[in-house]
Simulated scan of single mutants.
Amino acid sequence: MSLAHTPLLVVMDVDSTLSNEEGIDELAWAAGPDIAAQVAAITTRAMAGEMDFASSLEQRIATLKGLPASVIEHAKARVTATPGARELVDAVHRAGGLVCAVSGGFHELVDGLLDSLGVDHWQANRLAVSEGVLTGAREGPLVDAVAKARWLERWAEESGALRTVAIGDGANDLDMMAAADVSIGFMPKALVRQQATHCIDARDVSQAIGLLGLERSAPAVANEE
């Protein structure tokens, strides 16, 4: 592989990794506290590997059926960047690398955030909306554990990356972490902790900068006399 190719490709999960929140849980609050609690419980089980992701996502989206599409904007406003996210993206870019993201959440909630962070490419699921209301289904290809690994491999091939890194927190990230040269568990669930190359246990994703041997900030330029 040519050394002229991208030196580093970092592929990150979004919900609870690049963002502080689980997007589906934020949407569920619009359906009321009982539904929100039910959805949050399913999310927790799925992230721990106790439920198949596809079926758990289907169950959670179904609870949103009939909600006005306006709830998407309300949920989107509550999705915030994890501390250190912009620092990490900038550090990878300074090293000539790419940052990509794959989310089991939804484009409608994460697109603005990822664009603001300077993420290069991303993929996520999409919510189905009809006549201004959520249908309780999704549309388009499913982004699950298998898809996350495939996108990492596709971006690596397209960029000619010399080293690949996967960062995530839950069971849905295990396939892409296995496909990467280096895997970092971020506030990881037990299954991820067991399999990750490194783990970050503080809610500051910029700690990955040191783990990857990158510079935290641009080197100071010496004054010329």
Rank of each mutant, 00 (worst) to 15 (best):
N223S: 15
T197N: 08
F186I: 03
R150G: 06
L191R: 14
V192P: 06
D25T: 09
E58L: 12
P219L: 14
S130W: 12
L64R: 06
A95C: 13
A40C: 11
S70M: 11
T6P: 05
F106G: 00
L134D: 03
D169Y: 00
A41K: 13
A46K: 11
V14L: 01
E215R: 14
A101W: 01
A36W: 03
V92R: 11
V39Y: 04
L152R: 02
V39N: 03
M187I: 10
A128L: 05
L64N: 03
P83I: 05
P7C: 07
P83V: 06
G132M: 10
G84S: 02
A149D: 04
G104N: 00
D204E: 13
A91T: 11
V146P: 04
T6G: 04
L64D: 02
E225I: 15
V165H: 00
M176R: 04
L57F: 02
W122I: 07
G132I: 08
K65R: 15
A124L: 00
R138L: 04
T63M: 11
K148I: 03
I184D: 02
A75S: 09
Q194W: 02
D13N: 10
I42L: 12
E73Q: 12
D181K: 01
L57D: 02
A46S: 14
A220I: 15
K148W: 01
A91V: 07
A218W: 13
G118D: 06
L98M: 12
A190I: 12
A81S: 07
E87V: 05
D181V: 00
M1K: 10
R45E: 12
E26S: 05
A37V: 12
A69Q: 14
L191N: 10
A128C: 08
H198S: 10
V79C: 07
Q59Y: 01
S130D: 15
V221P: 00
P68E: 14
R94L: 09
L134C: 09
Q59P: 07
D120F: 05
W151N: 14
E157D: 11
R86F: 07
V146H: 10
T82N: 09
A180R: 03
A31W: 06
K148Y: 01
A48Q: 11
C100L: 00
V10L: 14
A46C: 03
S217F: 14
V182K: 04
A171Q: 04
V205M: 06
G96P: 07
R193D: 10
G105A: 00
E73P: 05
L8A: 08
H198Y: 15
D173L: 00
A156K: 12
I35D: 01
V14N: 02
A28L: 06
A41Y: 02
A91E: 08
K148D: 05
R203A: 10
G210D: 15
A178W: 09
I184M: 02
G32L: 09
T63E: 10
V119C: 01
H198F: 15
A4P: 06
A77W: 09
D34K: 15
E157W: 13
S56L: 02
D115I: 13
L67M: 14
H93T: 09
G32F: 12
T80C: 09
P68W: 14
W151C: 12
V110G: 00
E26L: 15
T80R: 09
R126C: 13
E26F: 08
S183E: 02
A147M: 08
F53V: 07
A77R: 13
A62W: 02
D25G: 10
M187A: 03
G136S: 08
N20F: 13
I200K: 07
L142D: 01
E50C: 04
